[in-house]
Write a protein that binds this DNA or RNA. Sequence first.
DNA 1: ACCTGTCAAGTCTGG
DNA 2: CCAGACTTGACAGGT
Length: 333
Amino acid sequence: MIVRFGYVAMSLNLKDSSPSKTMTMARFAKLPDREAALRQLERIAEENLHRTLRLLRHNVAEGIEMYRFSSKLIPLATHLDLQDWNPFEALAEPFAEIGDYVRKHRLRVSFHPDHFTVLSTPRPEVLISSVRDLRYHVKMLEAMGLDARAKNNIHIGGAYGDKPSAAERFVEHFAGLEPDIQCRLTLENDDKTFTTGETLAVAQRTGLPMVLDIHHHWVNSGGEPASDWWPEVARTWESPLARTDVPEGEPLPPKIHASSPKSPTDRRSHADGVEAGPLLDFLRVAARTSPHLDVMLEAKHKDQALFQLMKDLEAYEGDGVKILSGGKIEVQG
DNA sequence: ACCTGTCAAGTCTGG
DNA sequence: CCAGACTTGACAGGT
């Protein structure tokens, strides 16, 4: 099994490369000239996009082919008071540059809209802003010129005291989404509410591919190994919806999230790095099912955690592990 | 240069 | 019904 590693949004190695520079609403509201303030927001966004491209170049130079974009590329993009503002025209070029680079180097990229996007919500106004947020993420991917292989990962959402009804609402609300939003979604199990099994059931009903977070699984499960679920989870990546825009015969590698607990007393928080041992246990089992797998590392130390993990994996070389590049390995089942 | 409170958004818990 | 926790990087204002 070929395994590619990626990291989230920012690098600790590249100086001045935060792709999430922002402007607060309070600051925006204080500026006297609204048009000038909007231009300033666009300048910040442009800077974030240029930094994103720098990060991608850094990744390619290090052999890293997977990356999650920051959701904060355009400050205040979905704020209600700025709905008359369309920043995409001014940002067409930097977005296109990123997309060109992604295609040229065949990178796996994604977004992860944050926890304000909740399709299981019973509140209409929350659903409306959730859809607005999803549309914003899709627009960014479209502005990059990327097809539906580039996806937006979300959770099911809250349970509101009745998980089955919440899951039911998710399915209904999902069915009401525009097709171009639907075909770019992935569904991830969370650390408190929807377990691997419950998330998988919704993924199977909707046809969505499921991102298995093995750390979330560890803190929110009956104790059975995450790898027990792998064959079924992997199969969700074969659905027609998941494979939208995937050329016939080409693989769409399943994706998982990996992180390690911060401490025995704080098991839910993310540690600085990712432990090689437990991850490798999972990978060896997954290798029996899948020829390809992409692993998003969610660690405080971001790309440095990735470099450290690759270093730690060297100890397993010969023991069913082969290092292929700075961010890619081969694992024997 | 460094520190602290705050930030657009949601949900859950406990009072 | 409401305040605070959760969680996170970065701003903004203060020292």
